[in-house]
Amino acid sequence: MKLTRVLATAGLAAGLISTMAFADGHNLPAEVKARNGLMANYSLYLGILGDMAKGEREYNEDLALTAAKNLAAFAATDQSLLWPEGTDTMSIDGTRALPKIWEDRADFDAKADDLDKAASAMAQVTDIDLEAIQVSMKDLGGACSACHKPYREPE
């Protein structure tokens, strides 16, 4: 009787811990980890450019070019393997990807392409300068929001 209860409690605790670990990101599917990493890279390079545009970081042409090129390279990756079925908010914890992505995949892909276009347009500006970055930030941020609005669960 007592042993059963101890075992049941232990089992429950183990279950709880594994659930927490899952939600914590350790056991997320590799595709979800990869797309979160992709977003983190976008965020890093947008941050360097955005802080220059805002005047919170001194403008540096080499750094701006590196950030713009990397952002464009990440935005150009083929994302077809990053969004497998069954990795939406209804199926797993630890993601904010709404099921709507898979209901309208063509539109979702088109919105990813918009970021690709905006980022490569900025990276191809040969004489990149502060003003070009300030103008581009609006398109880049707009592309982020345009996809997050319909397809990411609000916090």
Binding site: Y42, S43, L44, L46, G47, G50, M137, K138, L140, G141, G142, C144, S145
Partner: peptide, 8 residues
Amino acid sequence: TTGLTPDY
């Protein structure tokens, strides 16, 4: 203007 937060 951009919809980007301070932590991007």
